Computed example of a mutant assay.
Amino acid sequence: MVHILGTLLPEKQLVKFALTHFYGIGHQTAARICARAQIHDRCKIRGLTSPQITTLTAFLSSPSTAPTLPSFPLATLDYVPPRPLGAELRREIRDNIAHLRNIGSYVGRRHAQGFPVRGQRTHSNAKTARKLNRVVRYS
């Protein structure tokens, strides 16, 4: 097992699928990160070298300040602006919801009441929204 930034990555898994264990990284972003770090599509976590692990760690810790890699024909990418990952992304989402609640918008009120936010039906199918938008009540 390999630990990168506190996340445990299984050794038998392909790198592009293992990177999705990080909060905020999907399949497309993981494929782009692998191409940028010049990691083959079929490379598994146990097949990574120390410089590749260092490159991944540097990029994931701060994408905006990560060193640029030399360009090879194998890894042609469009520029993707850096996004926050992990705890930073969670904090940003929480702050956005808090802002919506503070300004009293419709979406903020739905979050505060624990109802579905994006127009879903409330008569019978709001179990997931009740779970995710749980109202914190202090006695």
Score class of each variant (00 low, 15 high):
residue 3 H to R: 11
residue 3 H to L: 06
residue 6 G to A: 04
residue 8 L to M: 01
residue 10 P to R: 02
residue 12 K to S: 14
residue 12 K to L: 10
residue 13 Q to S: 07
residue 13 Q to L: 07
residue 13 Q to I: 04
residue 14 L to M: 03
residue 15 V to P: 05
residue 15 V to H: 04
residue 15 V to A: 05
residue 16 K to V: 07
residue 17 F to T: 11
residue 17 F to L: 01
residue 18 A to R: 02
residue 18 A to D: 08
residue 19 L to E: 05
residue 21 H to S: 08
residue 24 G to C: 07
residue 25 I to E: 09
residue 25 I to Q: 00
residue 25 I to T: 05
residue 26 G to V: 03
residue 26 G to W: 01
residue 26 G to K: 09
residue 28 Q to P: 02
residue 29 T to M: 13
residue 30 A to R: 01
residue 30 A to K: 00
residue 31 A to M: 09
residue 34 C to R: 05
residue 34 C to F: 01
residue 35 A to L: 10
residue 36 R to K: 11
residue 39 I to N: 02
residue 40 H to W: 02
residue 40 H to E: 14
residue 40 H to D: 14
residue 41 D to F: 10
residue 42 R to Q: 12
residue 42 R to V: 03
residue 42 R to K: 09
residue 43 C to L: 00
residue 43 C to N: 03
residue 44 K to E: 15
residue 46 R to Q: 10
residue 48 L to T: 07
residue 49 T to D: 03
residue 49 T to M: 01
residue 51 P to E: 07
residue 51 P to K: 05
residue 51 P to T: 04
residue 52 Q to H: 00
residue 52 Q to D: 07
residue 52 Q to W: 02
residue 54 T to G: 13
residue 54 T to Q: 15
residue 54 T to V: 09
residue 55 T to V: 00
residue 55 T to W: 00
residue 57 T to H: 14
residue 57 T to Y: 10
residue 59 F to D: 05
residue 59 F to Y: 13
residue 59 F to N: 04
residue 63 P to H: 08
residue 63 P to R: 07
residue 65 T to W: 10
residue 65 T to Q: 12
residue 66 A to K: 06
residue 67 P to V: 06
residue 68 T to Y: 07
residue 68 T to V: 11
residue 71 S to V: 13
residue 72 F to C: 09
residue 73 P to K: 06
residue 74 L to D: 14
residue 74 L to W: 12
residue 74 L to R: 11
residue 76 T to F: 02
residue 76 T to I: 09
residue 77 L to A: 02
residue 77 L to Y: 03
residue 78 D to G: 09
residue 78 D to H: 14
residue 80 V to W: 14
residue 80 V to P: 10
residue 80 V to G: 11
residue 82 P to G: 01
residue 82 P to R: 06
residue 82 P to N: 04
residue 86 G to S: 03
residue 87 A to Q: 13
residue 87 A to Y: 10
residue 90 R to M: 13
residue 91 R to N: 14
residue 91 R to P: 04
residue 93 I to R: 15
residue 93 I to E: 15
residue 93 I to H: 15
residue 96 N to P: 02
residue 97 I to V: 14
residue 97 I to C: 03
residue 98 A to V: 05
residue 98 A to N: 15
residue 98 A to F: 07
residue 98 A to Y: 11
residue 98 A to M: 10
residue 99 H to G: 14
residue 99 H to E: 15
residue 100 L to T: 03
residue 103 I to S: 03
residue 103 I to V: 15
residue 105 S to C: 10
residue 106 Y to L: 02
residue 106 Y to P: 04
residue 107 V to R: 14
residue 108 G to F: 08
residue 108 G to D: 12
residue 109 R to Y: 00
residue 111 H to C: 09
residue 111 H to G: 05
residue 112 A to E: 15
residue 112 A to H: 15
residue 113 Q to W: 08
residue 113 Q to G: 08
residue 114 G to D: 12
residue 114 G to S: 09
residue 114 G to P: 07
residue 115 F to M: 00
residue 115 F to V: 01
residue 118 R to A: 06
residue 118 R to N: 10
residue 121 R to M: 06
residue 122 T to E: 12
residue 122 T to P: 07
residue 125 N to L: 12
residue 125 N to W: 15
residue 126 A to N: 11
residue 129 A to E: 01
residue 130 R to T: 08
residue 130 R to Q: 15
residue 131 K to G: 06
residue 131 K to S: 11
residue 131 K to V: 04
residue 132 L to S: 09
residue 133 N to T: 09
residue 133 N to D: 00
residue 134 R to Q: 13
residue 134 R to T: 08
residue 134 R to L: 11
residue 135 V to R: 14
residue 136 V to H: 13
residue 137 R to P: 00
residue 137 R to D: 13
residue 138 Y to T: 10
